[in-house]
Amino acid sequence: MLSATRHSALRTLRAQACSRSFLSESPMSFRARLLSTLAILEQKDGKLNSGSLGAVTAGQKLGGSVHGFIAGKAGKSIAQEAAKIQGLEKVLAVENEAYERGLAENWAPLLVENIKKGGYTHVVTSHSAFGKSLLPRVAALLDVQQLSDVMSIESEDTFVRPIYAGNAILTVQSSDPIKLLTVRQTSFPPAETEGGSASVEEGVDPKVESPTEWVSEELAKSDRPELASASRVVSGGRGLKSKEEFDRLIPPLADALGAAIGASRAAVDSGFADNSLQVGQTGKNVAPQLYLCAGISGAIQHLAGMKDSKVIACINKDPDAPIFQVADVGLVGDLFEKVPELTEKLKSQ
């Protein structure tokens, strides 16, 4: 994939060099000008969000230089931390409390100014709630058709993304001068946060006021690994019958495995688990080493969010449930017996 990227980048470079009169410039500066990526990094309360570091990895796959972008109340001090991320050449930082809450209304003009000033050819952010809300707004302001949830990068203008809840995989070529991508977190591992030595520069701050006001947030508190990046996930569905049973059976099993907890839409809709735990087309995408689920039938929309897991195990009493078609290990049985037994046996090992 990398060689394809380079190859195609070089080809563009040659084509441009032949067709235009940039002869006074060296090939190196061409390349730098032709391919440069801005990777938007997320932060919360002055801490870098590791989930957003996949944007740097994706930027490196594009070839060319990669600059990081960070903004918020403690923009400059996080920029020092971000400068150590491997693969970044430069970090643009904007320190202004107005950007702390990630509101798209002032972030979009902020990014547009910085993208224009830096002459970036690519802008990458992770397909998180923040990226999903922000990047299309930026795309519209730049008159660009954005690409969502990119799973792989074929070349500087050709990308692969899932459509129809992952039932089809689309390879698509963009003709826009600037490519805006949100990348799937599970497809691009986070870049290393140590060993880099990027320079830090102050970004442009257009200081556009946001018409929306942030009021409050309520985040589900958990000491468990974060769902989207956990290496193991234990997930429960409608088969658990009630919130009490969900809370009685699922957390102990997750603890025994050191796993994050997930849920199907049915379980979330019935109030067994918090919305933020939903795995699927409209919830989170996960691709852990182990996805162990109980009482989940395996509807298309659920499979969309977990079928890239390394190993899928399921417990379901219906031997014909579609989940068995994707599971590496399937156990037909009553989850009210099997889950406690599994928890006990895992604990005693």
């Binding site: 709630a129 947030e217 933020s276």
Partner: peptide, 8 residues
């Protein structure tokens, strides 16, 4: 949002 809800 990721991890919960937010009010605007």
């Amino acid at each position: 949002v990721d991890g919960g809800v937010e009010t605007l």
